[in-house]
Amino acid sequence: MTELQIIIATIVSVSAIGILAASILYAAAQKFKVFEDPRIDEVEDALPSANCGGCGYPGCRNYAEMCVKADTLDDLYCPVGGNDLTATIAKILGKDAIAKAPKVAVLRCAGSPEHRASINVYDGAENCKVASALYSGSTGCEFGCLGLGDCVVACDFDAIAINKETGLPEIIDEKCTGCNACVKACPKLILELRKKAKKDRKIFVSCINKEKGGVAKKSCAVACIGCKKCQKVCPFDAIVVENFLAYIDYDKCKLCRKCVDVCPTNAIAEINFPPKKKKPVVAKEVAKPKVVAKKSVDKTNPTDESK
């Protein structure tokens, strides 16, 4: 064979293999083709693609499938996209959408070192679950935050970071999508999703200590002691005290801040409020819990950029 013949033979044989393989692939693709509702793709494109699992499904694709399958969108809420997204999906699928209140995570513990002294040093793996399986915590309070950052790891949106000064996680409201991942990650069940209010204002009891007042107060200066003062002062019956622990129902709370004023241990956190006109007691302000989230602009309706 001359060189030219070799070249021609090569080209011919390689092309033949290529055509053969292509046709096999094509035939296979046709044979095993699975019909999928094109709207699934459409919905999926509209989704934030965070794959955070906040909706309760393993990923955005599954959620899209469920949206297409389901009769109503009532139980299918994507916390990341919020109501805007629900409306978009509703439009694509021609279904009705019910607006839901967006939520944001809060940390119900204010036990920074100045409020509760460490009585020992944890020296194991940096993992809240490992530590909580071992013992109650490095301070006297066995309910409080361990500060090892399981919630930080769980957050897909960089919305939580440990504040080095307080040793407690801080939630950045603008980034928090309310996907529930941190709530599930916390072995101490300290984090809670609460309804977003105007200007991201929040009032909540920043403590989950269920011990008797004296015991709780001994282990942490800003613990809820269950004195019921807030319950009495609340004009909206939003506060319930159970097991020496107050809880503010966010649906009833009108953010009047009366409870904050009466709380003897400053266990009730007020966040994103302007400073008060009539100052109650100056000393109390100093001891205010430090869970204050980063100041935020009005974002009651998170848009795409908040993803």
Binding site: G124, A125, N127, K129, V130, A133
Partner: peptide, 12 residues
């Protein structure tokens, strides 16, 4: 490495 710490977690 904190092998047992995590294995215990996994066992739980």
């Amino acid at each position: 490495r904190a092998l047992l710490d995590y294995i215990r977690l996994g066992k739980g």
